[in-house]
Nucleic acid binder design. Structure first.
Lengths: 207, 207, 207, 207
DNA sequence: AAGTAATCGAGACGGTACGTCTTGTCTTGGA
DNA sequence: TCCAAGACAAGACGTACCGTCTCGATTACTT
C-alpha cells in the first residue's frame, strides 16, 4: 500500500498546485505529510469503509493537522482520488500493435486488472461522491473517467477506421458499453472482472 | 410529482412493515404523513441535491416529527427508494410477443423512458448511497436492481433458447451490458437515454 | 462544590428561559444536564484556570453534548456566571437595623465573606471576559454587578439622608470606593478581604 | 497614535531583551518592524476590540512575519503593554511641593488624564489578560501597576508622616482606595475620570 | 364510557464530524 | 543573525445532523 503511493510523484506532478510564481518565500509543502495523508486515507477506507472515512480520522492517522489536508485538497474524496490516480497511472497503456482485437483485449485486461480489491473500494466511493457532490464529480470526471474513456475511444476509432468495429456501433457507444459493464459490476453486482470478460467484450465490440 | 406519489400504495403494499399481527390497538399509521414525507424528500432532492437532503429537512418540510420518519424508514435513502419504486412500478412490463427483438426493444425503451430527469436524480443518489451504506445497498439491490435485472434476464433467456442471442453472449452478460450502459450514462456521462440507443442495444445483443 | 450548585434553582429561577408559551410540546430541559454543566465548569476552572476552560472540556466533563451547552448559554462565561450567581444569592442580604455603621459593616463583611477562593477565581474570570466580550459584559453587569451596587447604594442613601455619610461623599461615589477596593484586591493585588477591611471602609465612608 | 509610539524608545529601553552580550553578529533588530507592530496592535485594538486582536492580524497589518513578533514579545498582550507603557511614561511625575493635598491632587489628576479613551481600551484588555494568563499578570504588575502604586504610596507615606492622612487609613489602603476607584470605573462602570473626582478623592483620603 | 395502546408533532438529548480560526513552531530564501 | 513568507501540528470554535428519548395530545380498539 505505502509502496504504491510512494511511487507516485516521480515526475513532479503537482496534483493541486497553487500559483506559478517561480520563486517563493516560506516553508515548502511537506512531501512527507502528503504521502502520510494519501496512505492514511487508503488504509482507513479499507478498514472502515467510506462512510466512516473522515477528514479528522485521516489527519489523525497521518499525524498531521486537519488544516494541512484542507490546504491541499477540497476534502476526503479528492485525497482518495489522488491516491487512486497515483496508483493507477502505470497500469493504463494504450497498445497499438495493428491487431485491433489484441489491442482492445490488452487494454481491457489491463483495465480490469487494475480494478482489484484495494482499488475497487476507492473507485466505488469516488463514483458515489461524484453523484453527491457535483463539483467533485467534475474533477473525478476530468481526472479519472475521461482520460480512460478517451484512450479506449482512440483505440476503437482506429478499429472503426479499419472497419473492424461491430456493425451499428460507433467508437463512442462501444466505449460506453465497455466501461458500463466495468462500472456496473463494480457498483451493482460486485462480480469480479477477469480476462474472460475482456475476451467476451472484445468479441462483442469488434466484428 | 405529488400526483405520482399519491398513486403508490394502491394495493396495500406496506413498504416497511413491522409485524404480522392482524389486528392491533392504538392509533394507526398516518397515510397523510407518509405521503408528505415521500413528497418532501423528492422535492428537496430536486431543489438542493442529495448532499443537502437531511432527515431533519424532510421532516420539517413534511410537517412531521423526525421520529415518524425513523419509525417507518431506516433513513433518508429508503424514503427516496420508496418514492422511486412507487413511481417506477407501472412503467416496467415484461413484453412477450414472440418477436425477441421487438420485446427487447420495448423493454429497453420503457426502461429508458422511466429514467428521465426527476427520477434520474433519485436513482443516482440511491446508487451512491448503496456504495456508502452496504446495508442499504442490499435493500436497493433487492427492491430495485434485481427485479429489473431478472425481468431482462428472463426476456433474454427466451431469446437465447431461440438462438437469437448474439454469439458469445449469455443472457446474464447481455443483461449486464444493457444495464451497464444505462447506469454509465446516468452516473458518468449524464447523456440522455433515448429510443435510438434502445435500437442500437437490441441490434448489438441479438443476432 | 456540587452541593452549592444543587442548591440553586430552589425557586424556579429559569436563568436562560426562552419563551413564555405556557404549554409546550417536546422533551423538557434536563435539570441534570444543567447541573452537571455548572458543576463541571466550576471544577474545571479551579483545576485548570480560565484560559484552559473550554466549552468542549465542560461538555465532556459534564457528559453532555456541546449543543446542550450552546442551547442554553451563549458560552463558557455565561455558564460560570450562572454558577456564581446561584452560589452568591444567599450571601448578600440588605441589613436595615437603624445603625448605619453596623448595617454597612454587615453588608461589607458578608460581601467580603462571599469573595473567597473558589468564587474569586470565577469572579476574576468573569470580569476579564466582560472586558473582552462587551455583550457578555452587559449581562455580567446586569446580573451580578448592578444588583450589588444598588443594594449598597440603597444602604448608603439611607445613611446619607441621616447625615451619616462622610463629608464630600455621595452614595454613588462611596459605593464605587467600596467596590473599587474589593475588585482592586481581587484583580490586582490578590490580597484577602477580611472583616478588618470592612471596619476600615465603614469608618472611612461614614462620619 | 503612531506619533505617540514613535516617541517611545528614546532611551534604549529593550522591553523584552534577550541576553547581555554587548556586541553580537548578524542583522540587527529592525526598529521599523518594532514600531509597525506596536502601532498595528494599537490600531487593531481600537478598531476590532481585544477579542479580535490576533497575532496574525497584528503581523499582517504591520507587514511583518509572525516570528518577528514572537521573537521579541511573548504574545499580543505584551505588545500592548509595551505600547501603553511607552505612551504613559511621560505623564506620571511624582510631585513634592510640601503641600500634600496639592501633590496628591496633581498626581491623581495626571493619572486620570492619562486614562482616556485610546488608552483605556488597552488598559482594560491588559487587566483582563492578566486575570487569564498569570505569567502575563506578573509582568503587567511589575511593569505597570506596581510602579504607580509605589509612587502614590510614597506620596501618601509623606502625608502620613506629616499626620495629614485621614484617620484609620494607612498609605497602603489609601493607595488601594484610589486605584480601586480608578480601575472600578475603567472596568465596571466605564464612567469618565475627571479632575472633580481627583478633588473628592483628595479630600477623602487626607484630613 | 373508561381503559389501553400505538401514533403523532415537537423538541431536547448525547454524539460526531464538519470546515474555520488561531496558536506557537519550523523552514525557506534573501538581506 | 534577522527578516517576510508561509507551511506545519495542534486543538478549540460554533454549527449541522444523526438517531434516540421524552413530552402531551390524538386516535383507535377493547372492555
Amino acid at each position: 500500500m505505502a509502496a504504491v503511493i510512494e511511487q507516485a510523484r516521480q515526475e513532479p506532478q503537482q496534483p493541486s498546485d497553487r500559483a506559478s510564481t517561480p520563486v517563493r518565500a516560506g516553508r515548502r509543502r511537506s512531501e512527507e505529510s502528503r504521502r502520510a495523508i494519501l496512505t492514511a486515507a487508503y488504509e482507513l477506507l479499507a478498514e472502515a469503509g467510506y462512510a466512516r472515512l473522515t477528514v479528522e480520522g485521516i489527519a489523525a492517522r497521518a499525524g498531521t493537522g486537519k488544516q494541512t489536508l484542507y490546504r491541499w485538497w477540497p476534502g476526503r474524496a479528492d485525497v482518495l482520488l489522488e491516491a487512486v490516480t497515483a496508483h493507477a497511472r502505470q497500469h493504463i497503456p494504450l497498445p497499438d500493435t495493428g491487431d485491433h482485437a489484441a489491442d482492445l483485449h490488452a487494454f481491457l485486461a489491463a483495465t480490469f486488472a487494475a480494478a482489484t480489491p484495494p482499488t475497487t473500494d476507492a473507485l466505488r466511493a469516488l463514483m458515489a461522491e461524484a453523484q453527491i457532490d457535483p463539483a467533485f464529480g467534475e474533477r473525478f470526471h476530468d481526472t479519472l473517467l475521461r482520460p480512460r474513456r478517451e484512450a479506449l475511444g482512440t483505440l476503437l476509432a482506429r478499429a472503426h477506421t479499419a472497419g473492424a468495429l461491430a456493425p451499428h456501433l460507433t467508437p463512442a457507444t462501444a466505449t460506453e458499453l465497455a466501461f458500463g459493464l466495468l462500472w456496473y459490476r463494480l457498483l451493482a453486482t460486485h462480480e469480479p472482472l477477469d480476462g474472460q470478460l475482456a475476451t467476451l467484450l472484445t468479441r462483442t465490440l469488434l466484428r
